[in-house]
Amino acid sequence: MSADGSRRFAANVHGWLLVLPAAALLVLFTHYPTVATFLRSFFSTAKGARGSAFVGVDNYRQMIDDPIFWQVLSNNAYFALGTIPVSIGLALLMAIWVNGRIAGKGWLRLAYFTPTVLPMIAVANIWLFFYTPQYGLFEQVLSAFGVPAHNFLGSKDTVLTCLIIVAIWKEAGFFMIFYLAALQQMSPNLAEAAAIEGASRWHFFRRVTFPLLMPTTLFVLVNAIINSFRLVDHVVVMTRGGPDNASSLLLYYIYEVGFRYWDSAYAAALTMVLLALLALFAVGQFLFMDRKVHYR
């Protein structure tokens, strides 16, 4: 081996040694449990004297015939479609607004951050109070405008929309942080040049700002998609999936199957479906992050 080659080999070993503890912890606490879940999804749930046995894809077959699974999946898709575009749009709007020269900017930023830094479990409680029939501020303000009383969390038609609003409230500020960071990196020369050329503000946004923000938008988008499948605290606190599964999301259904019905094998199979969906988004982010989205 040449001296140069061996030095490079030594540097690599150094690097791997530095990475090793972190990798070991992650493998032990996230990768290994996931593999265990994957294996479990091919076995039956042990019941009484009858132990767990290999059943092949039976758990997955059961899923296809399970109407609640399909309902929960469509609920989740609806939840994602309702949450993502609005929260990203709002985040961008707020970031541009806060980035400008306006009075009380610091306070405004703080106001946006507040929902973001609150734990989801607290957010869920806050909105539970807010939506409460009769007492809740939401109902009181609506009744001041003449809207009749309505149990928003107790009705099949409105409950999912209520959860969507909570998620937007919680997430828009978080996404704004990333947009704000990207906006502050942008050279002011661009805006000056555009102003000299006589471009309107809208035109400047559409042709310069927005394309330059593309990497941030993609990063935020993938996070938003993942979050819409990964959040569950609000369902636990506010609705418990009800009424009649109208607000149950995939992850909450997994929790129910595993801990209310004690069918751990079926829960494992459901988990694998969720994981497959999420892994798809994560890999997509990894593959697209460096390419194609940059403005040239």
């Binding site: 990768h31 993942i226 892994a279 990894f286």
Partner: peptide
């Protein structure tokens, strides 16, 4: 900082857990 071999694969190991659902884990 370091020019690691298989850096992309290592990054993937670190990136994937952010997509894992916490609850089953």
């Amino acid at each position: 900082r370091l020019q690691l071999r298989w850096r992309a694969a290592i990054m993937l190991v670190f990136l994937l857990p952010s997509a894992f659902p916490n609850l089953p884990v």
